[in-house]
């Protein structure tokens, strides 16, 4: 592959070493370096880019738009008239779907919210702690433990779930949210541990070396340097945990048996059944409803993705 570049490569030797230029200084150098016609051309290019992005977005979104359109059609017309614009508008799917199950749909949204919030909190705290140890601390068998951690996500859920069920059943945890939340508090989601390890390793080590020289302990380095500087990684973890838990079907199906405890994915599944009538209209309507929280979390959460070192400066 590519040669590992020396750390200084990004800034060629010819550049005089000195204090980092401020943003305004950098910005000031731009206009002079552009040809006069550049501005108009840049505007055209910007428009073109938007057009391309929108066109691409429409292709990406077609199935979703189709689902949205179908959620406004009477169930029997969904497959007979599969076009994007409903010929007959029916908002009844939303009210029907909301009340179709034993509890109003808000009940399932709330259950999902509890599971999701517990999982997000658990993953943020426990995975970042484990990741700090793997990324920055020296201890015996570090590589071995790391390998074991990765191994734990290499077995498909389908063979893990039965022993897990037996385990949680013997703890009387079936039918509670504990089997879904407690593992997250215990950093069992190796994906996020590894993710944060990679981000932590991307933070210049000089920072915590310097902090150590100033007498900071690991707790403070972790809290004051690593966490603030890896906001994008934390945001990624939070967003993904949210979305994946929100959509996770299999483990919630297996561990929650009382309808009172059902979460959104299980509730959605009860609209369709291969052997009898399926309420496609209400299903699509409630699928749209259940996408809203996820979309909002993403829309607002992603601004934290953007707040990395790049905007906060290096210190």
């Amino acid at each position: 592959m590519t040669d590992a570049p020396a750390r200084t490569e990004p800034r060629p030797e010819s550049h005089p070493a000195g204090p980092r230029p401020t943003l305004s200084e950098v910005a000031a150098t731009y206009p002079e370096r552009r040809p006069p016609r550049g501005r108009a051309w840049a505007a055209v290019r910007r428009v073109l880019r938007h057009v391309a992005l929108i066109a691409f977005g429409l292709v990406m979104l077609y199935p979703l738009l189709w689902m949205l359109a179908s959620s406004f059609k009477p169930t029997e017309l969904i497959f007979r008239e599969p076009g994007l614009i409903p010929t007959e508008w029916d908002f009844g799917n939303y009210t029907d779907g909301w009340n179709a199950l034993l509890d109003p749909f808000s009940h399932y949204l709330l259950n999902s919210a509890i599971v999701v919030l517990g999982s997000v909190l658990g993953n943020l705290v426990s995975c970042s702690m484990a990741a700090y140890a793997f990324a920055r601390l020296k201890f015996r068998g570090r590589n071995l433990w790391f390998a074991i951690m990765l191994m734990s996500i290499m077995l498909p859920i389908h063979v893990i779930i039965v022993p897990q069920y037996i385990l949680f059943s013997s703890l009387s945890w079936i039918n509670t949210f504990l089997p879904l939340i407690v593992p997250k508090l215990l950093a069992t989601d190796a994906f996020f541990v590894f993710l944060m390890v990679q981000f932590f390793r991307g933070i210049p080590k000089d920072l915590d070396e310097a902090a150590r020289l100033d007498g900071c302990g690991h707790g403070r380095i972790f809290l004051r340097i690593m966490l603030p500087l890896s906001l994008p990684a934390l945001a990624t973890t939070a967003i993904f945990t949210f979305i994946w838990t929100w959509n996770d079907f299999f483990s919630q199906l297996i561990f929650l048996t009382k309808p009172d405890m059902y979460t959104v994915p299980i509730a959605l599944r009860t609209f369709v059944d291969a052997t009898s009538n399926s309420s496609w209209g209400p299903l699509f309507a409630m699928s749209i409803v259940s996408l809203i929280p996820v979309f909002l979390v993403f829309l607002f959460g992603q601004k934290y993705l953007v707040k990395g070192i790049a905007t906060t400066g290096i210190k």
């Binding site: 990406m60 979104l61 199935p63 979703l64 689902m67 979305i243 959509n247 996770d248 079907f249 994915p265 959605l268 599944r269 609209f271 369709v272 496609w280 299903l283 699509f284 699928s287 996408l291 996820v294 979309f295 993403f298």
Partner: peptide, 10 residues
């Protein structure tokens, strides 16, 4: 958004 749909029954 498409990634959000991944496991949906629909």
């Amino acid at each position: 958004l498409p990634s959000l749909l991944g496991g949906s029954v629909a």
